[in-house]
Design a protein around this nucleic acid. Structure first.
Length: 287
DNA sequence: ATCATCGATCGTCAGTCCCC
DNA sequence: GGGGACTGACGATCGATGAT
């Protein structure tokens, strides 16, 4: 999922997995596409309102893109339309003058070059097995994805969490390692039992309880101090890592939602433009 | 007021990845 | 290979909401 779309809808990179990016990079430079031209008509489409500006800017990865700014294509009846439309959603990398090939196939909307590939599925030697393998491989971590997005600067707005938990019981004044205490003495609201025990090391120790058969807690002896300290540290780190991971996951999902919105807008605009082009074509045809 | 349900959040475990 | 980081999965908890 490289090359994600940021909130403003601009692509941040031409990542290989970006469906927009992959659609545009395959056009050979300046390949002419004049086929059996019988007549050429140049149209100038009415300029649209600013709100209807192209969603695909010239410096963007366009869904429909060529290397040259004038291109001819074959229409079903042999006519060629040169479209000059300043705010067209169909841009070249260098200009906005471009021709369209309206292919006879019903499913093909707009194509230059005769290759209407707009996703990764058309990349030649990609076998289905290979694609499945890639699907099954672990996707990049949220950290990587967000780094690629340039969103790594997402503020460290950690949720004011503090290490330790609400039910930590400090009995440092009365406990020592090896103590055995009644279970009832450690009741907490949620039933979690973590003891803070002083002595036996620098700054005391956090230990997990254990119970013996007759419902007493056993405070581990000094030999377990290191183990329990390490465990507590590991749990603490993992706790914070889980928080961070969830935060990144939320960001990632937000990005995906934004991307969906942008692509929906693009799709809408393209459909509208195609509609108007078809109308123009029909007009020309009837004349 | 009480109960059931649902969604969100959290902590923990386990598996995987990645760097040294 | 070892250790740390990351993340999916699971269960527990909590608050909101609707039904009774």
């Amino acid at each position: 999922m490289d090359g994600m779309v940021e909130e403003n809808g601009t692509s941040t990179g031409a990542g290989p997995a970006d469906p927009l990016g992959s659609a545009s990079s395959s056009a050979p430079a300046s390949a002419p596409h004049v086929v059996a031209v019988t007549s050429i008509v140049q149209l100038t489409l009415p300029t649209q309102a600013p709100s209807a500006q192209s969603v695909i800017q010239p410096n963007q990865q366009s869904v429909i893109q060529t290397a040259s700014n004038i291109q001819s294509v074959q229409l079903p009846k042999g006519n060629v339309i040169l479209v000059s439309k300043p705010s067209s959603v169909i841009h070249t990398t260098q200009g906005t003058l471009q021709t369209l090939q309206i292919k006879p196939e019903p499913n093909s909307l707009v194509s230059t070059q005769g290759q209407s590939c707009s996703d990764d599925s058309c990349s030649g030697d990609e076998s289905p097995k290979r694609k499945y393998r890639e699907m099954l491989t672990r996707r990049p971590s949220y950290r990587k994805i967000l780094n690629d997005l340039g969103g790594a600067e997402i503020a460290d707005n950690r949720m004011g969490s503090k290490p330790g938990n609400e039910n930590e019981v400090s009995l440092s004044s009365s406990l020592s390692f090896g103590s055995v205490i009644p279970a009832g003495a450690l009741q907490t609201e949620s039933g979690l039992h973590t003891l803070a025990v002083s002595g036996g090391g620098a700054g005391g120790a956090i230990v997990q309880y254990s119970t013996n058969q007759d419902e007493h807690f056993y405070v581990p002896g000094p030999m377990l101090e290191d183990q329990t300290r390490k465990r507590e540290l590991r749990l603490l780190k993992n706790r914070e890592a889980a928080r961070e991971c969830r935060r990144k996951k939320k960001e990632y999902i937000k990005c995906l939602e934004n991307r969906v919105a942008v692509l929906e807008n693009q799709n809408k605009a393209l459909i509208e433009e195609l509609k108007s082009l078809k109308e123009l074509y029909c007009q020309q045809k009837t004349e």
